[in-house]
Amino acid sequence: MDPIRLLLVDDEAEFLQTLSKRLQRRGLTAELAHSGEAALDVLQRHPADVVVLDVKMPGMSGIETLRTLKREHPLTEVILLTGHADLDAAVQGMELGAFDYLMKPMDIDELLFKIQDAYTRKDLHERKIRATSDRLTRRGPLENNGEN
């Protein structure tokens, strides 16, 4: 299994650093971004499998970032971090295609499991797509009928 490419996005630098250190300890290396804009920028250079995205940020909000991100990188899975009151945003985020949401402060293990689940789903998606495109290129369009 390839290592999970992870991007953490939060405006609170201290929170981000500690979180990244704790994840590192659990075998996950993460890129960090301190704003929505920065996150999109980083993703251009280093595509990620899973993005952990804070909803409440100055500048580009989590929801806006999510919308752009999903457009540019449809396969990337997103886990939202919310305060309790941002439940509306969480629901909206789910509608926009986020994988799940967690309320801050969250349990590290819970986050870890969520990241792994998200990666599994992403991997599944990718493999499915790869398989389909492989078949298409290998057998040609005429033999498409046999496949269901």
């Binding site: 609170e12 201290e14 929170f15 500690t18 979180l19 704790r22 305060g83 309790h84 801050k104 402060p105 590290i108």
Partner: peptide
């Protein structure tokens, strides 16, 4: 909420 989240994280 945010400072508390950081504190809990640091404790973790």
């Amino acid at each position: 909420n945010n400072p508390v989240a950081i504190m809990v994280e640091e404790a973790g």
